[in-house]
């Protein structure tokens, strides 16, 4: 390979690696004030530490490569000039280190202060509960009939601060949407508070960031930031009861659902199904993914998930059920209609 070809290959590789830094889930591609603050810290620390590392390596290399002095020392004789030079170098190096450390500490302190200040004007409170292995999202409201429960997809108004109350139902989880904020743990028995703010509308992916069991990797969430009007429309739509089945197949599906094992864990508002240990399915078809970001929402994926949840997500709390083909098809048709 010629030198030029090597250089081009290197550049392509670098571009390829760096392209991973943008997108729906990246701390280096901030889309909110908290993430912006953190990204600034990351870059500043990285650049400064790189400069220091290069300087130190340069000095070490200089010492190694220096021509050895031929002059023989008398070990008992102290060269005052040399001693003075040495102490000056050591003192200034220690001073510089202290200065850098104090500087970085201050920088991190001020970043933290900014983070703590974000969201004192929060307009919305969302209770986010971690379960093995999905997220329960509950929008608090002073009016009880405006409280909304959904799962795995957090809709927020763009440009406004939202307060998240983080809780856990079983083990410690951690909520992290890298494009929006730094991660914070969901600890059983206590409530952690986090403020979420997305500057622009968009979809940002989040992931459980604390190992929580067999399906930790399949515990993702989407934060959907929408313009205020769109968010309000979504909220009102979600508050409604589930739509009535409109075809014969959907009606069979609803009856199978209500007479089958589904009702032991799931809730569909407007029907007798009212269990709360599994995700709320009232508007399941309005969500983009199923099984906490494991699969895209589609008829095929839904059927696969209901037929063999333990093959797709081994160890998840969704059991393998005794359904025949017709029952499965009917349930899928019904769930697909729950927009």
């Amino acid at each position: 390979m010629t030198k030029a070809a090597g250089r081009i290959a290197g550049a392509v590789l670098l571009a390829f690696i760096l392209s991973g830094c943008s997108g729906v889930q990246s701390a280096l591609d901030p889309k909110g004030p908290a993430a912006g603050e953190l990204a600034r810290l990351i870059w500043f620390f990285t650049v400064l530490c790189t400069i220091i590392w290069v300087l130190v390596m340069g000095v070490v290399a200089g010492i190694l490569l220096r021509r050895r002095q031929r002059r023989l020392h008398d070990p008992l004789r102290v060269d005052q000039d040399e001693e003075r030079t040495i102490s000056r170098v050591v003192i200034s190096a220690v001073g510089a280190t202290a200065l850098v450390l104090v500087g970085l500490t201050l920088l991190s302190f001020f970043a933290n202060r900014t983070l703590a200040g974000i969201g004192e004007d929060a307009v919305l409170t969302i209770r986010l509960t971690g379960h093995q292995w999905w997220w329960e999202v509950r929008y608090e409201n002073a009016e009880p009939n405006r409280i909304l429960t959904t799962a795995n997809e957090i809709h927020i108004p763009a440009g406004e601060a939202v307060r998240l109350l983080l809780e856990s139902d079983d083990v410690i989880h951690s909520f992290w949407v890298p494009s929006l904020h730094g991660k914070l743990d969901l600890v059983p028995g206590m409530v952690n508070t986090l403020t979420l703010r997305a500057d622009r509308p968009g979809i940002y992916r989040g992931q459980c960031a604390e190992f929580c069991g067999a399906q930790h990797a399949h515990m993702a969430t989407l934060v959907v930031a929408q313009p205020r009007a769109e968010f309000d429309a979504w909220y009102d739509e979600q508050l409604k009861s589930a739509v009535e089945p409109s075809s014969e197949e959907q009606r069979t599906g609803r009856d199978t659902f209500l007479n089958g094992p589904c009702v032991m864990c799931h809730r569909i508002q407007g029907t007798p199904a009212g269990a709360i240990t599994g995700p709320d399915l009232t508007h399941v078809a309005s969500r983009q993914t199923i099984a906490a970001g494991t699969l895209r929402f589609s008829r095929g994926n839904l059927a696969a998930w209901i037929a063999d949840p333990q093959g797709i997500k081994p160890g998840s709390k969704m059991p393998v059920m005794d359904l025949d083909g017709d029952q499965l098809n009917a349930i899928v048709a019904y769930l697909e209609s729950l927009k």
Partner: peptide, 12 residues
């Protein structure tokens, strides 16, 4: 040993 996938899945 965790058998999360009963075999056979059908039939009780």
């Amino acid at each position: 040993e965790r058998n999360t996938r009963p075999d056979p899945a059908l039939g009780s």
